[in-house]
């Protein structure tokens, strides 16, 4: 079971955390976050990432048997991200469409569903795409971390860029972070959510992955960690013995919701050599999934995330408000 192609789409606009802090009379702030232009959204970014993934996989769209699309910020209660991607790719017809969301964990659920469909022989290739443009209340803490972006993987049973070694999951009816429809994200006490939710769930999922694959944590050259709050990755890593190996773009682009895990994975793949292993862990309301990948071939999907991160236009806070449609109109 392999990743046969991948693609990423990161908006060009960025705002520095210092600029956001300046707007609210606060000092300091390191790093930047990606901002979708007023004409970029979950659909446009996801379509662009999916198209790049398909081009990287070098397979025609008619070979795709299923599309799994994830977002926590599509902006519709009824709609289809998977179908929008299918139209743009030319993958309409006898294709399973699966729209997932609500939790950033859904991206690893999507990978599992896709792998199951391929293993069953029902489909040959499947596409997993995730895109988010995270909304944040102006002046709130999450405004400093809410980024945007999309990424996609083409999975297949043959050889590919990286091989999937196995999964480990932990489910719990724990919510922690949520967003009422049409509103901004809310969180219970952040220390509570991290200590009783994130840290516990992630540890369980990782333990199950290690048990199932027989791997040890020191087998992994890099680890990526997908969660709505990017700082949780850095905080949980020492507890898992992964401190220096966590790779993340969140300092450059903030958190891109469901897409963050895949963007970080693609960034890690770009830096990895054949036979190196990458640990992938998601967290979201409902728990955590962990999966292990072994890099088979160093093959870049263009433009690379490194290029996209570097290719930026810094904007001011008023420009950000306009792009996010936070001024009305």
């Amino acid at each position: 079971m392999s990743v046969v192609g991948y693609g990423a789409a990161i908006p060009r606009k960025r705002i520095s955390l210092a600029e956001i802090n300046r707007a609210w009379g606060r000092a300091g702030g390191r790093g930047e976050r990606a901002v979708a232009a007023s004409d970029e959204d979950v659909v446009t970014l996801s379509v662009t990432a999916a198209r790049r993934a398909l081009a990287h996989a070098k397979i025609p769209p008619t070979e795709l048997g299923a599309i799994y699309a994830c977002s926590v910020s599509l902006g519709y209660g009824e709609h289809t991200l998977a179908g929008s991607v299918a139209l743009a790719l030319g993958a309409e017809g006898p294709v399973t469409l699966c729209d997932l969301g609500l939790s950033t964990r859904s991206v690893t659920s999507a990978i599992q569903c896709c792998v199951d469909a391929i293993r069953s022989g029902r489909i040959v290739y499947g596409l997993v795409v995730a895109g988010d443009v995270l909304p944040a209340k102006p002046g709130s803490e999450s405004e400093l971390s809410s980024g945007a972006g999309a990424a996609a993987l083409v999975l297949g049973s043959g050889p590919g860029v990286a091989e999937l070694e196995g999964f480990g999951s932990h489910a719990e009816g724990f919510i922690g972070r949520y967003r009422p429809e049409g509103d901004f994200p809310q969180m219970d006490d952040e220390r509570f959510v991290f200590q009783q939710g994130v840290a516990v769930h992630v540890a369980h999922a990782l333990r199950r992955l290690l048990e199932r694959t027989g791997l040890k944590t020191d087998a992994f050259a890099r680890a990526v960690f997908g969660a709505p709050e990017p700082r949780w990755g850095a905080r949980v890593a020492p507890k898992l013995g992964l401190s220096e190996r966590v790779f993340t773009l969140s300092g450059e682009i903030g958190s891109a919701g469901c897409a963050m895990l895949l963007l970080d994975l693609i960034g890690a793949l770009e830096q990895s050599q054949p036979n190196e292993k990458i640990l992938v862990i998601s967290w979201g309301p409902g728990g955590s999934d962990a999966l292990a990948l072994t890099v088979r071939e160093r093959s870049l999907s263009l433009p690379t995330v490194a290029e996209q991160v570097a290719h930026k236009e810094l904007i001011t806070y008023p420009e950000y408000l306009r792009a996010m449609r936070l001024l009305g109109g």
């Binding site: 004409d39 970029e40 959204d41 659909v43 446009t44 379509v47 662009t48 929008s84 743009a88």
Partner: peptide, 21 residues
């Protein structure tokens, strides 16, 4: 690929163009 307009709450998409980088 970009958002073109909003029709009764439903976004409609098409292509704009950016300089080749």
């Amino acid at each position: 690929f970009r958002v073109f307009y909003d029709d009764a709450g439903l976004r409609v998409y098409s292509y704009k163009f950016h300089p080749v980088r």
